[in-house]
């Protein structure tokens, strides 16, 4: 049973590592601010969720689990707010995203 939990934890860590490395590559590779926000969102959601899931599996059920869940809640509440503030401010400073525009923008 211990070995089984270890294997699942390793799998979670592997997916999380892959997620943050692909996100960091995207942060370098993509062309403008609005596209890079998607890569940052990938680091914030995919990476954090899988790493925290792995650590929760590793601890079992105690006070530490509650703290891990609290970290997850904080990150999941604050990440979209910072993304939106950055994007909104970039639009206010008249940066237009590359790519096509559909319809009339606000």
């Amino acid at each position: 049973m211990d070995l089984f939990i270890d294997i699942i934890t390793g799998l979670c860590f592997f997916i999380g590592s892959l997620s943050i490395i692909i996100g960091a590559c995207g942060l370098i590779k993509l062309p403008d601010v609005f596209s890079r926000i998607h890569a940052a969102g990938m680091i914030d959601t995919g990476g954090t969720a899988f790493f925290l899931l792995g650590m929760i599996l590793q601890t079992g059920w105690s006070l530490i689990t509650v703290k891990l869940i609290l970290i997850g809640v904080f990150v999941f509440f604050t990440s979209p707010v910072t993304s939106h503030v950055t994007a909104n401010l970039a639009r206010k400073k008249n940066l237009m995203p590359v790519g096509k525009k559909i319809g009339k923008l606000l």
Partner: peptide, 9 residues
């Protein structure tokens, strides 16, 4: 915003 790939600007 939370789903990667789409952002409310």
């Amino acid at each position: 915003t939370l789903t990667p790939g789409t952002v409310t600007t």
